[in-house]
Amino acid sequence: MATNKLPSAWGKIFWAMAFLLAGVVLCGPLPALAQSNIGTASVVKNQVQGIRGSATRSLALGGSVFNDDSVKTGDASLAQLLFVDQTTFSIASDSEAVLKNVYHGKQGATQRVLTAVAGAFRYVSGVQNPKNTRINFPFGYLTVRGTIVDLMLWPTRDVIVLDEGAITVVPYGSHVAYDMDRPGTMIVVYKDGHVDGPMVWDDTMKRIVGVIPFPVFGEKIWPVFVNDPQWEDSEQDRVNMTGGSSQSSGGTFCPPPGVIIGGFCSP
């Protein structure tokens, strides 16, 4: 009898395994499996490190990034992380971000949570439901709706520039939601929750690695270096670009005759 029952039990196990295998193969990986390797380093320029717990490794081109990894870039360095859903997350020089996939069992969905710790970043949403992404930054968070968004972080403020699509920005200090759907605008979030904007971004700050500017349209005026002070000096430009007086608008910056091109007072 026992010998008769044994094949039957193995048979159940066999069918159960086959069932599971079919599910995995046909329906894609289970969320729990997806939590390990969550993306690929599709750009690695100079020093890019992957940090997991206390272990630090140099990230190689094409190398995997994992759930809970921190990715840190050095001076004049750049990383771009590419995900299966074609989302990319670019990390400028001297920057750090933490990557996490959070599985919400109730909704049966995995939320991608990118935490920008310091530096400058660009998020370009792929083809997955963009609502399943949240980007944290020191003084708040944002959710996206088909978006290119740049983040520039300073010790005292976070600057969010919307290049395409729409986002909702929520400062931790106030929990007021700011919907932004006009590309070319920005919002500045401060620690206490107050914001400046949304307003038209004046192009006066950026970080450039190689030929890649942060934000996307951040090349109109000026290359800015490590701490990105706003090299704002452009009030003279339009005056002189139109052939008018250089001195009349604070002309002591521009001894006559003056012409300004692109952001600075020149002679």
Partner: peptide, 17 residues
């Protein structure tokens, strides 16, 4: 889908500016 194209072109420029 120009945003996806942007990422691809920037990928190339990162190693071949």
């Amino acid at each position: 889908l120009p945003r996806l194209a942007l990422s691809a072109y920037e990928r190339i420029l990162s190693y071949d500016p």
